[in-house]
Simulated scan of single mutants.
Amino acid sequence: MSQVTNPIQACSEIFFKPNGVFAALNVKHNWSWIPFILVITATILPAYVYFNFVDFEWYREIFINANYGDISPNEQENYRNSMTIDTILMFTIVGTIVGSLFINAILAVYFNLVTKSDEQNTNGFTDWFGFTWWIAMPGIISAMIALIVVALATNHQLDPVSLSPTSAAFLFNVSMESEWFGWAQGVRIETFWTIYLAAVGISQWTGIRGNKTYIIAAIPYFLLWGIWGLITAMS
């Protein structure tokens, strides 16, 4: 296991040598600001590039048809008039920051609670909150793929699912009109990488070993997919 001596090295090795990274993070502090900034930026940047490329009038129409197709024409027109590139980008930026902080805080509470009884665990909520940004780093790979997809596009009527090229929605061509679109967008390949990183981190920070680390790491994501899928199926 290689020794990690600085946060820049940790950001590089988290993808391929996570054991050393989490071993270092167990004794180092204030390194998690870098993955936080990287993850947030990687989430926002593809949306910024996409909305400055896409035929916005076309996008606005398919969005309204998919989400507000059952309301009156006057109400649709009100939504249409309120939708601009600037407002969507503002909602994207604010939503990404607030949503990510909220979701990662919940994950941190979960990891803190399920590992609390372990004698080797000396980390508290803030440590696990920092932990969540490190395990979210695979999302940067997805963001890079999304940027490539947009950069290579020649048609400005580019399907918004291109923003999540590692999702089930993209891979199985689930359209925005489908009631399963949101769920399919939420099921992503990199989530399984995140689960792996979480399991590695748990094994480095606690005395928990073996399959139990993967079970602990996977529960939040599979629980979310299951509940979300159940709600979608019943709606």
Results as ranks from 00 to 15, higher is better:
Ile231Ser: 00
Phe125Arg: 04
Lys212Phe: 03
Pro46Arg: 12
Asn74Ser: 15
Ala184Ile: 08
Ala105Leu: 15
Leu152Ala: 15
Arg209Phe: 06
Ala42Asn: 10
Ile93Phe: 13
Gly99Leu: 10
Asn52Lys: 06
Val94Asn: 09
Ile215Phe: 13
Trp180Ile: 01
Tyr214Gly: 02
Trp134Cys: 11
Ile37Glu: 01
Ile216Arg: 02
Val114Phe: 04
Ala24Asp: 01
Phe131Ala: 14
Tyr59Trp: 13
Ile208Lys: 10
Val200Pro: 08
Leu25His: 08
Trp183Asp: 01
Phe63Leu: 12
Phe102Val: 15
Pro138Arg: 11
Trp193Met: 08
Asn81Pro: 01
Gly69Ala: 09
Lys212Val: 09
Glu13Leu: 14
Thr194Phe: 00
Pro46Asn: 10
Trp31Ile: 03
Ser117Leu: 09
Glu61Pro: 00
Tyr59Val: 01
Ala146Glu: 09
Ser72Phe: 02
Gly95Tyr: 13
Ile135Trp: 01
Ser142Val: 13
Val49Ala: 08
Thr213Asn: 12
Glu75Tyr: 06
Tyr50Pro: 10
Gly182Lys: 05
Ala153Phe: 03
Thr191Tyr: 04
Phe91Thr: 14
Thr154Val: 14
Met234His: 04
Glu57Arg: 02
Glu57Tyr: 00
Ile97His: 11
Ala105Asp: 06
Thr122Lys: 15
Ile64Phe: 13
Leu147Ser: 11
Pro73His: 02
Gly226Leu: 09
Ser235His: 05
Leu223Gly: 01
Gly139Ser: 14
Gly210Asn: 05
Ala199Glu: 01
Ile202Ser: 06
Ala10His: 02
Val187Asn: 00
Thr206Trp: 07
Gly69Pro: 04
Ile189Glu: 00
Asn121Leu: 02
Ser100Pro: 01
Lys28Ala: 14
Val149Arg: 12
Pro18Ser: 02
Asn121Gly: 02
Ile88Gly: 05
Asp118Met: 11
Met234Phe: 06
Leu197Asp: 06
Trp33Cys: 05
Ser117Lys: 14
Leu197Tyr: 07
Ile88Trp: 12
Asp127Cys: 03
Val49Met: 09
Val27Ala: 13
Asp127Ala: 14
Asp159Cys: 11
Tyr48Lys: 10
Trp31Phe: 10
